[in-house]
Design a protein around this nucleic acid. Structure first.
Length: 547
RNA sequence: GCGCCUCUAGCUCAAUUUGGCAGAGCAACGGACUCUUAAUCCGCAGGUUCUGGGUUCAAGUCCCAGGGGGCGUACCA
């Protein structure tokens, strides 16, 4: 038994749940280790955290989204696409290694972090142009920080002291949770070697409250060789760093983090998140932020790997898709579920349709609360008002088809159809067109889409046709040239008449006549319905191909 | 080993994250248009929601057990 349609209540989303119980001040934290070019999967965490911050602010909470650059981490492999010259830098902090050739930035950390986020810390090396960086484009509002700055500022010194004094407890937690056995003299601290500058190869012992003894061991790790130096150094003020799992807990304590998501690689049982949580609670007496575990985001089902250079870079994807569409694709799926998206014509066409449907729904009066929230977090910039959804918005595959004609502008074409676009509609259409052009540039063979020949290729194809077909094309040309109305019905009629002109029955010998057309248009025996395609193509372009 | 995800129409997936009419796209099938091989329109069909239990007035959804598939993780971040 069902009554009349009632407004649906707002169902708790993952965003609501994460924010549930957060005090008026919400600190959301995320970070990135800039050890290579960031692939698209890295965007998911960013967008999840940004969505949380955005909704928190909409509710009147004071929300900070802090985004850290983990530049104290060691260079632990040669970044993909760079040369052997990086061997000597293995083991150094990322801020101390040079930027790979061809990338902007003064250090490896700066180069990769800047490329990914658009945030350049070093004022001495500002962007060459005013183009917004990826985070700005996506409408992500974050406060950036560098771990090297945080260490140097001394703000972590108290926590470092606590951890060093509690070294036995730390060893115990490692052993209990992950089965990692550390010898009794091991201290949870990695000094930067004063002689060779490496941080990944040092082994610290004997903390006396002011300094630690350390040895830069040649064989501590397999990926870098320490210089053998022994020294005594203060663990404070940026002379070294905490190991990863301690550093994570330290950030929670220092910043008072209330929510921090993490990829599934951190969230496995006895994984780094569990260890960090135990360290935070037991050693630092600090609550663990609300966790938001999230699955991977892949393109084309390809497993990403920044170290192996597999997968599209994040900044390339940001340039390809409209920001709201990218946000939508990532945020419409709850974090624990994996996302795969194919950058092909059917998938993009569907994605645009679905996004526009959400947009229309959000702009309507009876929007469901959950849709409203989803739409809000997909906006390219946070705003209260909802713009009208586009009235005239041709499907992506049609836009792509038109964009295959390099000299023809979509806006021009649309106005020739007699459609008047609002500013917002033309902006959206332009974004769609830009996506189509980028897609064509990145994937030359688009599955399911014909590739149009240029005039000289068409002439070549005409040479391969038989006499009847050439004759047919001539008649087509004549009839189309004189056609008073350039619309698909009239064109289709003209094609049929042209076939009859030369004594071909267009019904029974469709392959002869349409085959000829498709050959000169696409170099193919088959193609889309001719009338509507030619209507879209335009008279001039058509006639140049018919000869 | 441990953890997470997943199994729904022929295919790809939805079904709103604390249960409320199992739905779309494509494919297929039937029809219309003197206008196609990949057009458009109309229509039809398609299901034991992996299996077995349980909770409930009500389960694709929640709980327990089992099975298939995918991924993560073990020392580094």
């Amino acid at each position: 038994m069902r009554g009349p349609v009632r407004p649906r209540p707002h169902i708790m989303t993952w965003i609501d749940k994460a924010l549930d119980g957060c005090s008026p001040q919400v600190v959301i934290n995320d970070s990135k280790t800039p050890s290579g070019r960031a692939h698209v999967g890295s965007l998911r965490g960013v967008l999840i955290h940004d969505a949380l911050a955005r909704v928190a602010r909409e509710r009147g909470l004071e929300a900070a989204f802090m985004y850290g650059c983990d530049d104290m981490d060691a260079v632990d492999e040669i970044p993909h696409g760079t040369g052997e010259q990086f061997v000597e830098h293995l083991g150094k902090p990322l801020w101390a290694a040079p930027a790979p050739e061809g990338l902007r930035g003064e250090s490896m950390a700066e180069a990769y972090f800047g490329e990914f986020t658009g945030k350049w810390f070093d004022a001495a090396d500002p962007p060459a142009d005013d183009a917004p960086g990826p985070f700005d484009t996506l409408g992500v509002e974050a406060e950036f920080y560098r771990m090297s700055d945080v260490y140097r500022s001394g703000r972590l010194d108290g926590i470092i002291d606590t951890f060093l004094r509690a070294a036995a407890d730390v060893r115990q937690i490692y052993l209990r949770l992950s089965g990692a056995e550390r010898s009794d003299d091991w201290l949870p601290f990695q000094p930067i070697c004063e002689r060779c500058g490496r941080i990944g190869t040092t082994y610290a012992t004997d903390y006396d409250g002011e300094s630690v003894a350390y040895e830069c061991r040649p064989d501590l790790v397999g990926w870098a060789e320490g210089c053998g130096h022994r020294g005594l150094i203060s663990p404070f003020g940026g002379n070294g760093k905490l190991p990863w799992k301690l550093e994570w807990a330290a950030k929670w304590k220092l910043f008072g983090v209330s929510i921090e998501g993490a990829g599934k690689d951190h969230m496995a049982a006895s994984g780094s998140h569990e260890v960090s949580s135990a360290l935070a609670r037991q050693v630092l007496g600090c609550p663990v932020p609300v966790p938001v575990p999230y699955e991977f985001f892949t393109l084309g089902g390809v497993k990403m790997s920044s170290s192996r250079g597999i997968g599209m870079t994040s900044s390339d994807l940001v340039e390809m898709l409209p920001p709201q569409l990218l946000r939508y694709l990532v945020l419409r799926t709850q974090p624990r579920r994996s996302i795969n998206f194919d950058l092909d014509v059917p998938s993009l066409t569907k994605a645009f349709v679905e996004y526009e449907r959400l947009w229309r729904s959000a702009a309507g009066s009876d929007v469901r609360p959950n849709d409203s929230q989803l739409y809000s977090v997909t906006r390219a910039s946070p705003a209260a008002d909802v713009p009208l959804a586009p009235e005239f918005s041709p499907p992506f595959d049609s836009v792509l088809s038109l964009a295959q004609q390099p000299h023809r502008q979509l806006a021009e074409h649309v106005s020739s159809l007699g459609v008047e676009l609002s500013d917002a509609d033309s902006e959206w259409l332009a974004r769609k067109e830009a996506t189509a052009r980028r897609l064509m540039a990145s994937s030359p063979d688009l599955a399911g889409v014909v590739k149009m020949l240029d005039a000289s290729e068409a002439a070549q194809q005409r040479g391969g046709l038989d006499e009847r077909q050439r004759n047919f094309l001539e008649h087509c040309s004549q009839r189309l040239k004189n056609l008073p109305e350039w619309d698909s019905g009239a064109i289709q009629d003209a094609l049929f008449e042209a076939a009859r002109d030369v004594g071909i029955d267009p019904r029974s010998d469709a392959a002869v006549v349409f085959g000829a057309l498709y050959r000169v248009l696409f170099g193919s025996e088959t193609g889309p319905r001719a009338g509507s395609y030619l209507a879209f193509l335009g008279r001039h372009e058509t006639l140049t191909r018919l000869g």
